[in-house]
Amino acid sequence: MSEAIQPGDVVQMKSGGNLMTVSKIDGNSANVYWMLEGEIKWGSVALVVLDKIAR
């Protein structure tokens, strides 16, 4: 089993997309930030759809 996702981890949706940084775990969701066209974006994503990226 993989290590649990924690604040500060870099993650990506299992279906692909931008790399995101976890700022907070809130129950079964992660609050995440990512860059898109030079702007900081943020949102909440279900942990079940995220993969932790080894850095």
Score class of each variant (00 low, 15 high):
V48H: 12
D26I: 06
M1T: 12
D51V: 00
S2T: 07
A4E: 07
K41L: 07
A54W: 03
G27S: 08
M35R: 07
D26T: 06
L19T: 01
I40W: 05
G8C: 06
M13A: 13
T21D: 02
L36Y: 13
G43W: 03
G17Q: 08
G43C: 10
V45T: 12
D51R: 01
K41M: 06
I25M: 05
D9G: 11
V10L: 13
V32N: 00
M13H: 12
E37G: 07
A30C: 02
N28I: 09
S15D: 13
N31E: 15
N18V: 12
R55D: 14
N18S: 15
D9I: 07
E37P: 02
R55W: 10
A46E: 07
E3H: 08
Y33S: 05
A30H: 01
Y33W: 04
S29M: 11
G27Q: 02
S44C: 12
G16A: 08
S29N: 15
M35N: 12
N31A: 14
D51K: 03
V49W: 09
A4W: 00
D9N: 15
K41W: 00
I40D: 13
Q12K: 12
R55M: 11
S29H: 09
V10W: 06
K52N: 01
S2N: 05
T21N: 07
M35I: 11
K52A: 00
V48F: 09
V45Q: 02
L50P: 01
P7H: 04
V45H: 02
T21V: 11
V45W: 02
G43L: 08
T21G: 09
I40E: 15
L19F: 09
G8F: 09
G27Y: 02
N31K: 15
V32C: 01
I53S: 06
V10D: 03
S23Q: 12
I25Q: 00
M35W: 10
V22L: 04
V22C: 03
G17L: 03
V10T: 15
N18I: 08
S15E: 11
V22P: 00
I5Q: 00
S23A: 07
A4T: 05
Q6M: 15
S29Q: 12
L36H: 10
L50R: 02
S44V: 10
L50D: 02
M35Y: 09
L47W: 02
I53V: 15
G43V: 09
S29P: 00
I53T: 09
M1V: 11
E37V: 08
D51Y: 04
Q12L: 04
